[in-house]
Simulated assay, not measured.
Amino acid sequence: MGDIVENEASFYSNAEHYWREVPPTVDGMLGGYGSISSIDINGSKAFLKKFLGDGEAQTASGCALDCGAGIGRISKRLLLPLFRTVDLVDVTQEFLNKARTYLGEEAKRVGNFFCSGLQEFVPEDGRYDVIWIQWVIGHLTDEHLVEFLRRCQKALRPNGLIVIKDNMSYEGVVPDEVDSSVCRELDIVRSLAARAGLRIVHEEQQLDFPKEIYQVHTLALR
């Protein structure tokens, strides 16, 4: 990713500009693939429920953080049904404004709407049981991703969990000039998580997505 790091400012500003032009809808959040939302949420829910509970090593259901939350699609259908409180962070203020209405009555259980890029965002130490990071790591350089994951680790409660769910390329790092992002292969994501001092406790591939899109993997990290 050296070429991107050299143009770090434009890498981030171009992405911000791209998302400002995207309509604040589920279809907009999913790049025209709004039809996969239910498959995605159901897969995520099954994944997450493996960890939640009251047992000694189980993850509690107090507070979750939705990273790259957009209009709150994941908060509405995955996190708010499972957690007492959810915080949202996104770089686009218009999306967060829309989230307040999109979430309806459940917006009352949102603790914070943070408008920030993840490269700058510092989650509160010891606040979160789950930090959900979906379809957004491609907007971070390697160094910023590692640093963000380290901050996330500090933000976890006991038995807390960081979950990355994202597209994985079949080989290497594939840039996307349209939205100013990259798609990394799974081994690279694993190695960046390890650099952040995290270990993978569970990993799955999302099934039943359209064949023309990248494979999507979910990683649970501590």
Rank of each mutant, 00 (worst) to 15 (best):
H144I: 02
E16L: 15
V216N: 03
E105V: 12
Y12F: 07
L118Q: 09
Q153K: 06
I39T: 06
I188Q: 11
L103R: 05
G197K: 07
A194S: 04
R222L: 12
V146A: 10
E185S: 09
E16A: 15
D54I: 04
T25R: 00
C115D: 01
Y12M: 13
V130A: 07
V178D: 14
A15N: 10
K154T: 13
A69L: 07
G2K: 09
Q206Y: 08
F148V: 07
K108F: 00
L149R: 05
D142I: 02
G2A: 08
S10K: 10
E120M: 03
S180N: 15
Y128G: 02
E21R: 11
L79D: 07
R100H: 05
L156R: 03
L88N: 11
H217A: 10
G160T: 13
E212A: 05
Y33R: 09
L48R: 03
S75Y: 06
A15S: 15
Y102N: 13
V189N: 14
T141S: 11
V182H: 08
V163R: 00
E212G: 04
F113N: 08
C183V: 15
I74E: 07
T218R: 09
W19E: 12
E106L: 12
V26Q: 10
I133V: 14
C67F: 06
R151E: 00
R190A: 01
N7P: 01
